[in-house]
Design a binder for these strands. Structure first.
Length: 351
DNA sequence: TATCCACCGGAATTTATGGAAG
DNA sequence: CTTCCATAAATTCCGGTGGATA
């Protein structure tokens, strides 16, 4: 029985981070100058998705704030450009203005930010892979009190991106997180069980979950939650292996559904055609797409030529939404998970 | 078994968009 | 305001692929 749903939410920051002691310590060391009122070091925090990069940053900075008054702001970079970063950094700073003008230029924002920071200010740039360029960093570079914790997936990609940019945010320190082992992740799940559920779950079952999700903590926690929900629906208090397998499917479906919904119309149309066909050969897919081009009426997008469609199909595959077998003109497309319903209906082209 | 050809995907090129500079 | 520049997305071009066809 779930008694504290928040324990299973992505934003939940646990009081303890098992098996991350060394990483917490490393990050703390970099940030500790703040205890003396000095500027913390810049840190690059990397690792695959779902292994606790954001949680590590929140947890460690949270502890720092218990010891000293230091300002910090979390910014999810996805979809933001330099202006958006500066605006958020300014708006969330305690000494910042109540409202920031909509049309303020990047320079104006930067100057205003520089004038209001009065001590160490830590910016956590989450999902920094999503930044279009280094412009944001180049601006922040000119405000001496600001330091950064940059969270991204791949160090090499990130450094290549910095390229010839002269920013000082080349990171004094890099904290790398890896996937958890089965045992480690089971420990983490045990804590969630203790804090969020009314009953207990046998260790073996938690290890089964950990193994199923291959050490990705976020998936493990979501799978645990979905498995418990399933058992609850069926009036059982104990988890079975089937609950775990089904919970994993549900968790994956949720993630993929949100993946699909985040994509533009092109992808939705292609996905809807494949979903309604079940299996569809390349030629037929392109024919139906062309037959459905009237769907673009009233949108500010234009139908794509075949080459661009292929790019969208590749993306759908990367997102775990479709799959295919065969090659060249004999390729057959299909959806990976029937349970993920398309957002648009394509009755008119399903014939 | 040689050729055909519809589709694939890398690479170069064009187009659209938005910010910065003058 | 215009011009310039950078970037991303889409198109154009084209060699590669492999089951179908004769």
């Amino acid at each position: 029985m779930i008694i504290k749903p928040e324990v299973f939410e992505d934003q939940f920051v646990p009081r303890q981070l098992p098996h991350r002691d060394g990483k917490v310590e490393q990050l703390s060391r970099a940030l500790n100058p703040a205890l003396r009122g000095e500027r913390p070091l810049d840190v690059l925090l990397t690792g695959p998705s779902g292994v606790g990069k954001t949680v590590l940053a929140r947890h460690t900075i949270g502890r720092l704030q218990e010891q000293t008054a230091v300002h910090r702001t979390y910014i999810r970079c996805l979809g933001l450009e330099a202006r958006g970063i500066l605006r958020t950094a300014l708006r969330k700073h305690p000494g910042g203005p109540k409202a920031v003008a909509e049309d303020a230029t990047t320079e104006a924002l930067r100057n205003e930010l520089r004038d209001c920071v009065d001590g160490p200010y830590i910016l956590v740039l989450d999902e920094a892979d999503g930044l279009p360029d280094t412009a944001a960093l180049d601006h922040l570079d000119r405000i001496p009190e600001i330091s950064t914790v940059i969270i991204c997936h791949d160090v090499e990609d990130w450094q290549a991106r910095l390229g010839n940019s002269t920013t000082r945010f080349r990171s004094d320190d890099t904290v790398r997180l890896e996937r958890y082992t089965v045992d480690e992740l089971a420990d983490i799940l045990e804590i969630r069980v203790r804090e969020g559920l009314s009953g207990t779950v046998p260790r073996k079952r938690l290890e089964h979950i950990s193994d199923t999700v291959a050490g990705v903590a976020r998936d493990g926690i979501q799978t645990l939650k979905a498995a418990v929900e399933r058992a609850q629906e069926q009036g059982r208090s104990e988890l079975t292996d089937d609950d775990v397998e089904d919970g994993y499917e549900r968790a994956r479906t949720r993630i993929r559904t949100s993946n699909l919904y985040s994509l533009p119309f092109h992808h939705h149309l292609l996905y809807a055609i494949i979903h309604s066909a079940g299996e569809i050969k390349a030629g037929a897919l392109h024919d139906r797409y062309e037959a459905a081009e009237d769907r673009y009426r009233g949108r500010d997008l234009m139908p794509l030529t075949p080459r661009a469609r292929r790019s969208k199909l590749s993306k759908l595959k990367r997102y775990g939404l479709i799959d295919w077998t065969g090659d060249s003109r004999h390729r057959v497309y299909r959806v990976q998970d029937e349970a993920i319903a398309p957002q648009i209906s394509i009755e008119s082209v399903s014939a």
